[in-house]
Nucleic acid binder design. Structure first.
Lengths: 203, 203
DNA sequence: CTATTGTTTAAAACAACGTTTGATATTACA
DNA sequence: TGTAATATCAAACGTTGTTTTAAACAATAG
């Protein structure tokens, strides 16, 4: 069962597909191109992954797993609300800068099969926000911050972080900037987003 | 040129495709289904629109044209910054509530062909923000609001408005709410977004 | 060693998709 | 009316993702 060459082949498929998906986008890469680039037979793709969709989901989970856990740990940590928001925003942007695939993948999934989103455990992990919500409510009731709708606030937080990456090509075209300049813009954005969020709730 | 039946056929195609795109999503509707539903021959689709992509872009422009103009007028109007932001956010959310296609369309385009975004004049119109940026800078220099990066602020504004619609299926799944409840949530969000934006820049 | 199980290859075909072709109607206009 | 432009149609094309079938190869257990 799963001899040396087996794992190698599966891994070659994953690596090749990841690189191609990243380079050209999921929908502009065909299975034949993946197989050819990886130097393996087309049928092997359906031997290890029953479909392109499953290969895609596999890669997605690999890419997002540790990062999602990283972000969840921050939300569940014992910090002041201010520091937690600052660290969450900063880390989230770093994660997206390191993995250009992620937002594109999520958008692709949401856009493609809205019904099968629930199946992805990773996303569930990403938005496990109970403790953060609880902290927001406590601080709010204690009068340490303004009264706030926790659900809306969290939605705003991820909107401010994620959306610019979702429309990255549009931003680059509009501002006539290249990839590196976009990355600089996003690093600079960390502080902007934190300030916007914090000043909107602090007393 | 363009006899009675001609315009009718073209219009039937547009109407049918719009309805189907709205119902099932652009990528889950085939050209044969559109033709069959419209009761016209398959080839006529490529007779009037050279490709499915062009049919899609045509519909997109029709759907977004007046709305984009509506939003631009608000940004260019002579109001106090506070009222302008409130009206822009409120109107933008109303537009998206009325046209569930729009965000899905934009995401589809950004995701599909990032290079051909510039071609769409409508988007150019959507993000014609010079006068708004200028107003932001003036108010900032006059000390009426906090010093702010206008580009980042505008990006934040559209992020807060658009992103929830971009991930609507995810939100509904996560909060276990139906379409109507999501719409209520978005209507309620108007005030939340405005407050977040305004308190983050007001003195 | 042999038999079984898992892996790899090749070639072909499938259904569905967007698109194109070429023939045929229909209309417009001189 | 005659002819060119326009509109419509059935059929096929090329490319997808996926499946099938048949044949080998490798590794392991009995």
């Amino acid at each position: 069962m799963s001899p040396r060459s087996g794992k190698t082949t599966k891994q070659k498929l994953i690596d090749t597909a990841t690189a191609l998906f990243l380079e050209k986008g999921v929908d502009r890469v065909g299975v034949r191109e993946i197989a050819a680039t990886a130097g393996i037979n087309l049928s092997l793709m359906n031997y290890y992954f029953r479909s392109k969709e499953i290969l895609f989901e596999t890669i997605f989970e690999i890419q997002i797993k540790e990062r999602a856990h990283l972000l969840r740990v921050i939300l569940d940590s014992e910090q002041t609300l201010e520091n937690k928001i600052r660290e969450y925003v900063s880390t989230y942007i770093d994660v997206l800068l390191d993995n250009p695939l992620l937002v594109s993948f999520v958008m692709s999934i949401v856009h493609r099969s809205p019904d099968t989103i629930a199946k992805m455990k990773v996303i569930e992990n990403l938005y496990h926000t109970e403790s953060f919500m609880e902290q927001l409510r406590k601080e709010s009731e204690a009068g340490n911050i303004k009264p706030i709708d926790a659900e809306q606030f969290f939605l705003s937080m991820i909107s401010l972080v994620l959306f610019p990456f979702a429309i990255q090509p549009l931003i680059q075209d509009r501002n006539r900037i290249n990839n590196e300049q976009f990355r600089t813009m996003m690093r600079y954005r960390k502080e902007h987003v934190f300030q916007a969020l914090w000043t909107s709730i602090k007393n």
